[in-house]
Amino acid sequence: NQASVVANQLIPISTHLTLVMMRSEVVTPVGIPAEDIPRLVSMQVNRAVPLGTTLMPDMVKGYA
């Protein structure tokens, strides 16, 4: 099972991601792979992401 990136807190819209905001967890459905966490740092979310939500490629500007 592959770990995905999950929000560690509420991430407001247009926030630049930091390591503190993300954790890796095995979830269904599978989202952005956990090994991409370093790549996600300083990218922006294009919507509010609630605590515990799996980050999907379409939620992060410039990821997909």
Rank of each mutant, 00 (worst) to 15 (best):
1 N>W: 11
1 N>M: 14
1 N>V: 13
1 N>C: 08
2 Q>W: 10
2 Q>R: 14
2 Q>G: 12
2 Q>P: 12
3 A>G: 13
3 A>N: 07
3 A>W: 12
4 S>R: 02
6 V>H: 02
6 V>K: 03
6 V>Q: 03
6 V>F: 02
6 V>S: 01
7 A>F: 02
7 A>N: 01
7 A>T: 09
8 N>F: 04
8 N>S: 15
9 Q>R: 10
9 Q>K: 12
9 Q>A: 11
10 L>Y: 15
12 P>Q: 08
12 P>I: 04
13 I>E: 15
13 I>P: 11
13 I>D: 14
13 I>T: 13
14 S>W: 15
14 S>C: 07
15 T>S: 13
16 H>R: 15
16 H>N: 11
16 H>P: 15
16 H>L: 10
17 L>T: 00
17 L>P: 00
17 L>W: 00
18 T>E: 10
18 T>N: 05
18 T>W: 03
18 T>S: 11
19 L>K: 11
19 L>S: 09
20 V>S: 11
20 V>Q: 11
21 M>I: 03
22 M>S: 01
22 M>N: 00
22 M>E: 01
23 R>P: 01
24 S>F: 05
24 S>A: 12
25 E>M: 13
25 E>D: 08
26 V>G: 05
26 V>R: 10
27 V>K: 08
28 T>N: 12
28 T>Y: 11
28 T>E: 15
29 P>V: 05
29 P>E: 06
30 V>Q: 13
30 V>L: 10
30 V>C: 08
30 V>D: 07
30 V>G: 11
31 G>D: 01
31 G>H: 03
31 G>Y: 02
31 G>L: 01
32 I>T: 01
32 I>E: 02
33 P>T: 06
34 A>F: 07
34 A>V: 09
34 A>E: 08
36 D>T: 08
36 D>Y: 13
36 D>W: 09
36 D>Q: 14
37 I>C: 05
37 I>A: 14
37 I>S: 03
38 P>S: 13
38 P>A: 10
39 R>Y: 11
39 R>D: 08
39 R>L: 12
39 R>N: 13
40 L>R: 01
40 L>E: 00
40 L>I: 12
40 L>N: 00
41 V>P: 00
43 M>Y: 08
43 M>W: 06
44 Q>C: 06
44 Q>T: 14
45 V>L: 08
46 N>W: 07
46 N>F: 06
46 N>G: 07
47 R>H: 10
47 R>I: 11
47 R>M: 10
47 R>E: 08
47 R>D: 07
48 A>W: 13
48 A>T: 14
49 V>G: 02
49 V>W: 04
49 V>S: 01
50 P>T: 10
51 L>F: 11
51 L>M: 13
51 L>T: 15
52 G>V: 02
52 G>W: 04
52 G>A: 06
53 T>Y: 10
54 T>G: 01
54 T>F: 03
54 T>V: 09
55 L>P: 00
55 L>N: 01
55 L>A: 01
56 M>S: 06
56 M>N: 05
57 P>T: 05
58 D>M: 10
59 M>Q: 04
59 M>E: 02
59 M>N: 05
60 V>E: 02
60 V>Q: 00
61 K>G: 08
61 K>H: 14
62 G>Y: 08
62 G>S: 08
63 Y>A: 03
63 Y>W: 14
64 A>Y: 11
64 A>I: 11
64 A>V: 12
64 A>K: 05
